[in-house]
Amino acid sequence: MKVVAKRPESLMDKPTHYCPGCTHGITHRLVAEVMDEMGIREKTVGVAPVGCAVLAYEYFDCDFQQAAHGRAPAVATGIKRVLPDNFVFTYQGDGDLASIGTAEIVHAAMRGENITTIFINNAIYGMTGGQMAPTTMIGQKTTTSPYGRDSKSAGNPIRVVEMLSTLEGSAYLARVGLFNNKEIKKAKKAIRKAFETQKEGKGFSLVELLSTCPTNWGMNPNEALDWVKSNMVPYYPLGEYRTPEGGDNK
């Protein structure tokens, strides 16, 4: 019998705590597959955020550090400076990275810190129960924007990849969406490219994944996937924003 699908070795054999229809599971798998394919599991140290992925260290079969809210890029910097030959990645959500950890991500990119960041943008705080994130769409209802996000009071959503693309230290920046199989394949390619960038010592790499949060969005999983495509993608254009070779393919 031929095996056509199996759990990547870089993932533990245990069920996750993520809600049904949440795309965290897909992203975990994509990262693990890339680790397997590159044969780097035993040399990888992950950094978990505060947020839904706080327990990421339970699911990946590699060494992990859990960081304070927003500080994963600083923690990763400390690790990478001690272990320059290891692979170090952070896995962060939008509250963690784009709100409380803005300084840390910008400066890690500015330094060209040779780490990889997996950035989950689902336009909301998940773990704490659906509050407004800096990436929340205009008009989107959350527990702290019950009448919809109003740009007059809460500003407009942050486009993280575009912001970081002004920094010379950013070697690889891409935004992908997890709303259909084709895009998921592209997402994996981007993650692979980010880790390859680190392997070659080119500098900071980040992949922003437009993701779902059906529970806090109040949708079923399919509606949530459609919402990513129809509401988020127009505001957060997909593509590569910086590559080590230069130029962008968006």
Partner: peptide
């Protein structure tokens, strides 16, 4: 490695990472 961090907050978290990676920091 000497690194001037972007803030004291970042600096102590770099210490956390480096300590976790086994270094005297």
């Amino acid at each position: 490695v000497f690194l001037q961090a972007e803030s004291e907050v970042a600096a102590i978290n770099m210490v956390y990472g480096a300590a976790g990676a086994g270094a005297r920091v």
